[in-house]
């Protein structure tokens, strides 16, 4: 028997009204579910890594009987996760071409942004779990989260070459405020937006990343050779000097990711032979706020532009 099993249709249907398109809320809910499904693999890997780290800290804690203090907080990890997550979010979609996503009855640009939003929801959940994990670990090992720090500030006239004179350091008491707990979330958000824009807006995002790194390396070598040959000092490290403000500047990437905690402090040897962390400034949350505003705005604009590559077009 090759015919279809009998179905009991009612009287022949009529089509009096046009079918409805789905509500944006329904689309978002479904995309959150589907994106969560797509991120299962990445979540498993992250969980395994955290479990290993927990085990390592526990073993260290038992063997040395020391607590952990989160005085190096915040870390760059949430920002890095934010930058990598879009790859997993979009991995199963044919972003360019007649992919299934684009056959659905949702405005394309809106759909792309909704999917990006769904990924962001999971990202925030992940970052929250990461922060909770850090706090739990700190608490379990008897450490303190964000204890007051004594920063050894380097006075401006001291150069970094050679051992430092302890007299050139000024001790400053710094107590990180609770607002610093927001940094992982904003950092992850900004990097997620920028990376989402790259993944959604380009057919070959990896080629762009590799190409940019290669271009930087090549231009560094080229300018160094040219600078040395022409005896033009400023040319030798021109690419680095151009890039430095973008990463370590007042509103650079490090200000976004760690409120410049990473770049303002550095390990140094004192004239007494002692190793210590010296600081070129006290981390300012005001700088972080502006950096967050700038990078997040840039991310939002870039994501809008990237999503617009998929728009329906020819809208009357």
């Amino acid at each position: 028997m090759t015919t279809a099993p009998a179905f009991q249709p009612a009287d022949r249907r009529t089509r009096s009204t046009r079918p409805r398109v789905p509500r944006l809320g329904s689309v978002l809910r479904e995309q959150v579910r589907a994106t969560g499904f797509a991120l299962r693999g990445a979540a498993l890997i992250a969980t395994a890594l955290l479990a290993l780290l927990t085990l390592w800290v526990a073993l260290q804690s038992v063997s040395r009987d020391v607590g952990i203090t989160l005085n190096a907080w915040p870390t760059q990890v949430p920002g890095i996760i934010g930058a990598l997550l879009p790859i997993a979010v979009w991995a199963r979609d044919e972003r360019f071409g007649p992919g299934f996503l684009w056959t659905l009855p949702v405005d394309r640009r809106r759909h792309a942004l909704t999917k990006a939003l769904a990924g962001w929801v999971w990202l925030m959940g992940g970052v929250a779990l990461f922060v909770l994990w850090l706090l739990a670990l700190t608490s379990a090992t008897g450490g303190r989260a964000l204890p007051p720090e004594t920063l050894h500030l380097v006075t401006s006239q001291v150069t970094t070459a050679g051992p430092l004179d302890p007299a050139a350091l000024r001790a400053v008491r710094w107590t990180p405020g609770p607002l610093i707990w927001v940094i992982p979330f904003t950092a992850a958000t900004a990097t997620y937006l920028l990376a989402s824009a790259l993944v959604l807006g380009s057919r070959h995002p990896l080629r762009w990343v590799i190409g940019t790194v290669l271009a930087y390396l090549l231009s560094s070598v080229a300018t160094e050779v040219a600078g040395a040959g022409l005896r033009v000092g400023w040319l030798e490290d021109a690419p680095e000097r151009l890039l430095r403000p973008l990463i370590y500047g007042r509103y650079g990437l490090d200000a976004l990711l760690t409120a410049r905690i990473e770049s303002l402090g550095a390990s140094a040897t004192l004239a007494t032979g002692e190793q210590t962390t010296v600081w070129w400034g006290v981390p300012q949350l005001a700088d972080w706020r502006i950096a967050t505003l700038l990078w997040t705005s840039a991310g939002l604009l870039a994501l809008w532009a990237a999503a617009s590559r998929h728009r329906e077009r020819r809208r009357a």
Partner: peptide, 11 residues
């Protein structure tokens, strides 16, 4: 118009 009313067409 399929270009300007994509979602309404596809549904």
């Amino acid at each position: 118009d399929t270009g300007s009313a994509g979602p309404e067409v596809r549904v």
